[in-house]
Simulated assay, not measured.
Amino acid sequence: MVREAAVGDVGRAADTLAAAFADYPFTRHTISADDHATRLREFQRLFLAEVGVPHGRVWVTGGLDAVAVWTTPDSGGARAVMERLLPALVELAGDRAPAYAGAEEEMDRHRPTEPVWFLGTVGVHPDSRGRGLGRAVIAAGLREADAAGVPAFLETSAPRNVGLYESLGFGVTAEYDLPDGGPRTWSMLRPVGA
Score class of each variant (00 low, 15 high):
M1Q: 14
V2R: 07
R3S: 02
A5R: 02
D9H: 04
V10L: 13
A13T: 11
A13Q: 05
A14W: 06
A14M: 07
D15A: 15
T16Q: 02
T16W: 00
T16I: 05
T16L: 01
A20K: 01
A22M: 10
D23G: 15
Y24D: 15
R28A: 15
H29Y: 02
I31N: 03
S32T: 15
D35T: 13
A37Y: 12
A37N: 11
T38W: 12
L40H: 04
L40Y: 03
R41S: 13
Q44N: 12
L48K: 06
L48A: 08
A49E: 15
A49M: 06
G52N: 04
V53H: 09
V53E: 09
G56Y: 03
V58R: 01
W59S: 14
W59N: 08
G62H: 11
G62C: 08
G63I: 06
D65H: 15
A68G: 05
T71E: 09
T72K: 10
P73D: 02
P73A: 00
D74M: 08
G76Q: 12
G76K: 10
G77Q: 08
R79A: 12
R79T: 14
R79D: 11
M82H: 09
E83T: 14
E83C: 07
A88I: 09
A93V: 10
A93C: 13
A101W: 08
A101L: 14
E104N: 13
E104M: 09
M107H: 05
D108I: 04
R109C: 11
P112S: 07
T113D: 14
P115F: 00
P115N: 01
W117M: 03
L119D: 01
G120I: 06
G123M: 07
G123N: 06
G123C: 08
H125E: 05
P126K: 15
R131G: 02
R131S: 08
G132S: 05
G132T: 14
G134Q: 05
G141I: 01
L142D: 09
R143S: 13
R143F: 05
R143T: 12
A145N: 00
A147E: 14
V150N: 00
P151I: 06
F153Y: 15
F153M: 03
L154R: 02
E155P: 00
T156E: 03
S157L: 02
P159K: 11
P159G: 14
R160N: 11
R160M: 13
N161V: 05
N161F: 10
G163Y: 09
L164F: 12
L168M: 14
L168K: 06
G169H: 03
G169K: 03
G171E: 14
V172Q: 10
V172H: 11
V172D: 12
T173I: 07
E175Q: 14
E175S: 15
Y176Q: 06
Y176S: 07
D177Y: 12
L178C: 00
L178F: 01
L178Q: 00
G181K: 00
G182Y: 00
T185V: 08
S187F: 12
L189A: 07
R190N: 03
P191G: 13
P191Y: 11
P191H: 12
V192G: 03
V192L: 04
V192Q: 04
V192D: 02
